[in-house]
Design a protein around this nucleic acid. Structure first.
Lengths: 336, 336
DNA sequence: CGTTAGCACTCTCTTGACGAGGTTGCTAAA
DNA sequence: TTTAGCAACCTCGTCAAGAGAGTGCTAACG
């Protein structure tokens, strides 16, 4: 266990490094943070902290830099100190978003922009899962005798749609009948429910092949749409960070982010965590491409249809600010 | 006017530079491109080409590099040589997209991915303007007595929606009545028509404040949605290009791209061009932030609701490949 | 007149040397 | 346990020298 002073030294070093992005030496530390001891003493402490794996030297005769483990203790301290409980959104953020439309997409977009600006990180806002939300209404719109659009409105107001092609001719009347039937059968259920019932064979309407086709499309479309509805902003914020001044450092991150499949599952365990805010630091990330960045994420929304709001930045990110900002975004999006 | 050989020299230099991204010297040029003359001769030609402004030296004793003007003649030659007329999409591209869903969004997404991969550039696919497309159907869905969603299906199958808040209570019956009325009045018109009629005061239904509110929202929402429906992929492709190995070079570009307002107008004059494919090279771009990149863009779709497909890359991009790829994307999206 | 060979010149890039600056680890003393 | 002092170490900047690449010029050639 670390002594009180050594914890202070570690915290001071991390705060300094977060601010200046330069290795921190013993003298700087003693002077800038009023530790009340001499640089020599700090040196001894730094040596201990290095042995313990919390910090490291880029090379002999450079100052120290935090390791992932160092950030971890720092963040754990932040989280347990009650920072995460402050429900108050960042004032300027609320200000900015209050002008926002009631539109979910617009709100997500604005929230994402605000997050990116406030944290100087990349932000991601994923819409609540439509798959687990209840269906409020279903509308069929004929495009031709062989094509129609099915529009699903979820309980929370999200709208998803999909074009369906028929192999046989389908009249408007048939379509209208199908719409009525489908609304009777599906409204109030989530796509997850529907699929379960489908598997169990408890939906009698299925005798009609047209209805069956549409239900299949609805379920598939609601499942797919989860990944599509993400807003992301702040690549330019990342580019401004010194750790990404060489774009080789950013390449693996962008490759992951541009691959929807990965993004979709990057936050799968967000909800599983015990605390509401999840922080993954460097190598704690599941994929090696993200080993150089940290992710601060938390779910939002109520019930079983939860969205995710997250920021991604260098491991040297301002964790306190990021956690506060993400919590604030959570509030903003929740109250929507 | 340049002699035949000097044009060949210029073309060879540009092709070489596009391939290797290194300044090209006279010896390399003479050897690699079988010009049939000695390096000394090539040197004379290079000197002339430099005086004419087509190429430049990064410094004395380096090879030459094309200027924007050099690329321009190169591209003009490409365009006039009939390359742009080849309507055949890139075979592998068609292959990739054939597996695609009939969904417009999905198709745009896949097309964008294919473009980015084929050209090693950033690709942007913007949806056809819903604002100028005709309205096929309008649906109102009540969320509560004070909120409803209006869903507009356009003639071409695009779906846009928006949440409306009422100051006074609105019953489901009132909503249904409004929906019927609105469908009678609006179907077959474009949002542009509607706004024109609105200004002219020729819509009698407007006596009803509820209907008026909804129409306003519909027009505004269709206008706004133009900018929102863009798919963009390939930042990682750009990061791999040597000109962006220093991320300072990419920063201004990303700032422009993350600012929707700019993106929205970047292609305003696409349609005005005489040829179907527009190529803007370096400083030809309207904003100085884009002075370091080239844009190859062309419209797609028919009638007055046109989308835009474009790729953005370093001025040293493979123009021939990019033009072919963009044309192919145009076909794919048009035939949808 | 266009083309070619030869040659001096210029510039960048790499390498190695060197000193300045900053940080550490160790030792010994308080 | 803390502190001061000191030698050692490493990076970074500058500087100089040499290699390499490419040019421009001049003179010769067909």
């Amino acid at each position: 266990m670390l002594s009180e002073r050594r914890q202070r030294v570690l915290r001071a070093l991390i705060e300094d490094y977060i601010q200046y992005a330069l290795p921190v030496g013993s003298r700087t530390l003693a002077e800038r943070h009023r530790l009340g001891v001499s640089p020599a003493t700090v040196r001894n402490d730094l040596s201990v902290l290095e042995d313990a794996g919390f910090i490291q030297q880029p090379h002999t005769s450079a100052g120290r830099v935090p390791t992932d483990a160092g950030y971890r203790t720092f963040v754990d301290e932040l989280l347990s100190s009650g920072l995460a409980e402050e429900e108050r959104p960042h004032p300027s953020m609320v200000e900015e978003l209050r002008a926002s439309a009631s539109e979910l997409d617009a709100l997500m977009e604005r929230t994402s922009a605000a997050l990116a600006r406030l944290t100087d990180c990349l932000s991601i806002v994923m819409a609540p899962s439509v798959f687990s939300g209840r269906i409020r209404q279903l509308t069929l719109v004929s495009l031709s005798n062989y094509q129609a659009i099915v529009i699903v409105v979820a309980e929370d107001g999200q709208v998803v749609n999909r074009t369906i092609s028929f192999t046989d001719e389908v009249t408007c009347d048939e379509l209208a009948a199908a719409q009525n039937l489908l609304n009777r059968v599906l409204v109030g259920q989530s796509a997850r429910d529907v699929r379960r019932n489908l598997d169990a064979g408890t939906i009698e309407a299925l005798r009609d092949p047209l209805v069956q086709l549409i239900i299949d499309e609805v379920v598939e479309c609601l499942g797919e749409s989860d990944g599509n509805r993400a807003h992301s902003l702040g690549i330019s914020s990342l580019l401004r960070q010194p750790e990404f001044s060489d774009s080789k450092a950013l390449l693996p991150v962008m490759e992951v982010l541009e691959d929807d499949r990965v993004l979709l599952h990057a936050f799968d365990d967000t909800v599983d965590g015990d605390g509401p805010v999840m922080v993954r630091i460097g190598h704690e990330n599941p994929t090696s491409e993200l080993a150089g960045v940290s992710i601060v994420a938390c779910p939002y929304g109520r019930g079983d249809s939860e969205g995710v709001v997250a920021v991604i930045g260098p491991t040297r990110m301002n964790y306190a600010g990021a956690i506060r900002a993400v919590r604030a975004a959570q509030c903003v999006l929740h109250d929507e």
